[in-house]
Design a protein around this nucleic acid. Sequence first.
DNA 1: AACATGACTGTCG
DNA 2: TCGACAGCCATGT
Length: 99
Amino acid sequence: MLAVVRRIPPGRVATYGCIAELAGRPGAARAVGNIMSEGGRPAVPAHRVIAAGGRLGGYGGHEQLKRSLLLAEGVTFRGARVHPFRALEWTGPSRRLSR
DNA sequence: AACATGACTGTCG
DNA sequence: TCGACAGCCATGT
């Protein structure tokens, strides 16, 4: 799972559910978020992991920082939601739109 | 092994 | 569009 998060390309965002699916555990979005909260690996760009619908989701109480990090990656935000979420939504490495 | 918790998701109002 | 309720998964006690 954490490996999947690491596969998220820069400037792109992935939802917990998407990561769970890529990890082979569809519906385990909560589990993904839970693992992230544990912070098992610092090399995992957790700031690229957002909730469904382009929502910020959570960041251990530092969602503002998360927004800034994404903003630095080129992700535009619309209040508490990404604007071109549909275009920035990374659904997996098999997506020819990415890469 | 079982119960409780949590960075989630989808549907109803 | 926003708020509340129920469902599902992994980890920790």
